[in-house]
């Protein structure tokens, strides 16, 4: 009887160990699955963003190359409309619209940086109109915008100038 009892006791721990190992394996597998899913999600996110940005088939091809990785920031039709508005008789090629789009993008980037430099000198966090106006008045490149973005003058100063002009006229008389 004693001899028959001992093998039973031996068998039971074996089965337990086996169960433990199987559960561990299952847990590992689950972890792997989760990590895979996470990776898939991460992978999925990036192409979605790029797909959303690119509207033109050419741009998709262009995205491959590093330098021209960006898709167009501004809608092509809008730019075409604006160009047409300038000179209705003239035809505009697709590459001209594309060139303008890229040029505008670069212009806005540089203009924003220049304006922000003024903002920093002013020790402010918020980029505001006066910083833009300041850049336009200082840099020759932006002269063509001087009528659109005049620097603001205080009413007092304006009145003084007016009084001075008035005085001049009065003196002449």
């Amino acid at each position: 009887m004693a001899s028959s009892n001992t093998p039973k006791s031996h068998k039971s721990p074996k089965t337990k160990k086996g169960e433990i190992s199987t559960t561990q394996n299952k847990a590992k597998e689950k972890n792997r699955d989760i990590s895979k899913e996470e990776n898939q999600k991460k992978k999925n996110k990036k192409p979605k963003l790029s797909n959303g940005n690119s509207k033109h088939p050419h741009e998709k091809g262009a995205e491959g190359s590093g330098e021209d990785g960006k898709a167009n920031v501004f809608p092509m039709n809008r730019i075409r409309t604006m160009i047409k508005g300038e000179d209705p008789d003239m035809r505009v090629s697709q590459e001209a619209v594309l060139a303008i789009n890229k040029a505008v993008e670069k212009f806005l980037e540089q203009f924003t940086q220049d304006a922000y430099s003024c903002c920093v000198q002013d020790r402010k966090k918020c980029l505001s109109y006066k910083h833009v106006a300041n850049v336009v008045s200082k840099k020759r490149r932006y002269d063509f915008l001087s009528d659109f973005v005049p620097e603001k003058v205080k009413a007092e100063d304006a009145l003084r100038e007016r009084d001075a002009a008035g005085n001049g006229v009065f003196q002449k008389i």
Binding site: I79, M82, I83, E86, I100, A103, V104, F107, L108, F111, T112, Y129, V132, A133, V136, Y142, F144, L145, F148, V149
Partner: peptide, 12 residues
Amino acid sequence: TMQECVSEFISF
């Protein structure tokens, strides 16, 4: 203001 400047750049 930037919006207008950018549009003016295109015209220019």
